[in-house]
Amino acid sequence: MRYMLLIYFDEQDLSETERQECYVDSVQLARELNSSGRYLAANPLHPVSTATSVRVREGKRLVTDGPFAETREQLGGYFLIDAKDLDEAIGTAAKIPMVHKGTVEIRPVVEIPGLPTG
């Protein structure tokens, strides 16, 4: 079963050194997951100041600057993993470096047929 682990934290509350450490530790975690076949994808995201939101309403495209919602903590990265159940996903979420400063939201992935693989 696939789970999306969404990593939320306060971007302002992260120094450059901490960011670099977080990258190193996250790569380590991704490799660990990969060695047991549970890694699917992972990436940090650029800050919300680089975000663009798009909507199409009544055929008209509306492009705005900024994230979907202004919140105290922002979506800053993700892991897409394979896990046998929620407890295993919780175990992986607890190993994500930013879990100590922010929050990891676990969302089970809906499997729909017809998507290209790899």
Binding site: L86, D87, I106, P108
Partner: peptide
């Protein structure tokens, strides 16, 4: 069902 909460006694650590 959807998030697959397991039907098990948690591990010693948990």
């Amino acid at each position: 069902k959807e998030a697959r909460i397991p039907y098990q006694v948690p591990s010693r650590a948990d």
